[in-house]
Simulated assay, not measured.
Amino acid sequence: MTARRSRHRSAAYAALALGLAGSLALTGCNSHSSKKSKKSSSSSSKSKKRKIIGGGAAAAGAGAVSRRVPDCYPSTYKVTFSQQTGPKSHVAVKFKNSTSRDCKLYNAPLLRFNNAKKPLPLLQGTPGHLDGTRITVPAHGYAYAVIPTNTAATKGIEQKSVAIDFMGISASSATHGPVTVDFAEKRLHISVGKSKVTNWSSSIHGAQLAGGVGK
């Protein structure tokens, strides 16, 4: 009897040991699989964050490009001239931005009357890269410059035509033009002598003040 009981106990212990070993093995597999799942989930989340961040940067870059303001370009219908008489006589130069987008004007218009070799001097000096002026002309908006003609020398003689260039960011940079306005064709009487032209201004009043002919 004793030997039989001993054998039964040994068999029971062996079965119990095998059961425990199998349970531990399953637990280890499940734990390892859970860790893998967590790592995979974390990696996927990081990847999504990178995509979102990258997409945001690309969108910001595209927005910056779309907000870049182009230069304004002259044409015979965008640039007009008118002569003002009286003690504060002057020629007003008006530019119209006829597009549906803002554009930039630098410094002053370059004006060559009657095919002159050199443009009219600038009243506010020769602009450089840092001290030049720049204005943004809104869509369908205007910009103005003034040529004072309130003395006999500055009024000079009646001109037949004017070639117009638009300056770049500095005096040495490329200009946009020229275009030529024929005053006789437009039935305009514009008299300009030894005068100078102001920088562009967002208002006619500002241009007149810069030219010393403001009210």
Rank of each mutant, 00 (worst) to 15 (best):
F81N: 12
N115D: 15
S170R: 09
R187D: 13
L188N: 08
H176T: 09
Y106F: 15
M167C: 06
P121H: 00
N150G: 07
T149F: 02
K88S: 07
T85M: 09
D131E: 11
K160C: 05
K117Y: 11
F81Y: 15
Y77Q: 14
H176L: 11
L123R: 08
S195T: 00
E185P: 00
V192P: 01
V179W: 03
G86N: 04
K196H: 10
K104Q: 11
V137A: 11
V192S: 03
L188W: 08
K117A: 15
D102S: 14
D102R: 11
S161V: 04
V162D: 06
F166Y: 09
V93K: 04
V179G: 06
H140A: 12
Q84S: 14
I164F: 01
F183S: 09
V192A: 04
L105N: 05
S172E: 03
L105V: 07
T136E: 12
F81R: 12
N115M: 09
G132E: 14
N199D: 14
A163T: 05
M167K: 01
Y144V: 03
H90Y: 14
D131R: 09
D102H: 10
S191M: 08
K194Y: 03
N199S: 12
K96D: 12
T180R: 03
T136H: 07
V192R: 02
Q159M: 10
H129I: 13
